[in-house]
Simulated scan of single mutants.
Amino acid sequence: MSTSSYIARPTPNGYTGIYVHFDGGPSSKLPLLLAAYEHHFGQDLAAMTRHLVDDVAIGWEELGSDLLDGAPPEIVAALTCGEHWPSSTLDNLVTPDGSPPTRMTVTETTAAEQDLEWVYVLRPEGIEVIPAQRFSSGPLIAWGTDPRTNFTDPAAWSRVAPSTTASPRSPGPAAPNASRTAARR
């Protein structure tokens, strides 16, 4: 079973984002997004947002380890346990009536009526993590946060400090997500 989520950009009144089908929980999305921002996109938030939110026709099936290109080997190993897989989009969808699929978007006003669990808003100061229980706001994870931080307990988050002042809460690599591994086989 997948955990659905959205990657979003801030708007004057909230956010707008694009659907991501697999591995939407914070324990997989936050490390990948933090490392991608730092290493793959070179801290260029505009390029990252364009790639993840704006340039996707329908939605993402999965965000892959290709977003870790340029990251140090120890970060890649900690986040992927040595696995490699490409990001993939939802390009082969078929609608019940045969019409072309439409872009799978979310905003702060439509989130509650959609079947999703997390929204990740890419803000200048970090990633705002909005859980399904409340689609208006959530904790902010600073961009400088070590991607190896343990993000399995959202209740313990309180504006996680950048890695220059904090160390990972849980050393060692995270276990690979079984649903993602099974889906790629």
Rank of each mutant, 00 (worst) to 15 (best):
E117G: 14
E117A: 15
W118F: 13
V119E: 05
V119H: 05
V119N: 06
Y120V: 10
Y120S: 05
V121P: 00
V121Q: 01
R123E: 15
P124S: 04
P124M: 05
E125D: 14
I127D: 02
I127N: 02
I127Q: 03
E128L: 11
E128P: 01
V129I: 09
V129C: 14
V129W: 01
V129P: 00
I130N: 03
I130M: 05
P131Y: 04
P131C: 03
A132P: 01
A132F: 12
Q133S: 15
Q133V: 14
F135N: 11
S136V: 11
S137D: 14
S137M: 07
G138Q: 01
G138F: 02
G138R: 02
G138T: 02
P139G: 13
P139Y: 08
P139R: 10
L140M: 15
I141P: 00
I141Q: 00
I141G: 00
A142G: 07
W143C: 02
W143F: 03
W143S: 05
W143Y: 03
G144S: 07
G144E: 12
T145K: 03
T145H: 02
D146A: 11
P147C: 04
P147M: 04
R148D: 01
T149V: 09
T149S: 07
N150T: 06
N150E: 11
F151C: 08
F151H: 10
F151N: 06
F151T: 07
T152P: 00
P154I: 08
A155S: 09
A155M: 02
A156Y: 06
A156F: 08
A156S: 15
W157F: 11
W157N: 00
R159M: 11
V160D: 04
A161K: 08
P162C: 01
S163P: 00
T164G: 08
T165L: 10
S167I: 05
S167W: 03
S167M: 08
P168Q: 09
P168D: 06
P168T: 09
P168E: 12
P168I: 09
S170T: 14
S170V: 13
S170D: 12
P171T: 13
P171H: 13
P171V: 12
G172D: 09
P173A: 13
P173V: 02
P173E: 11
P173L: 07
P173Y: 04
A174M: 12
A175Y: 13
A175N: 09
P176H: 00
N177F: 00
N177S: 12
A178C: 02
A178N: 10
A178D: 15
A178W: 04
S179W: 12
R180A: 07
R180I: 04
R180S: 05
R180H: 00
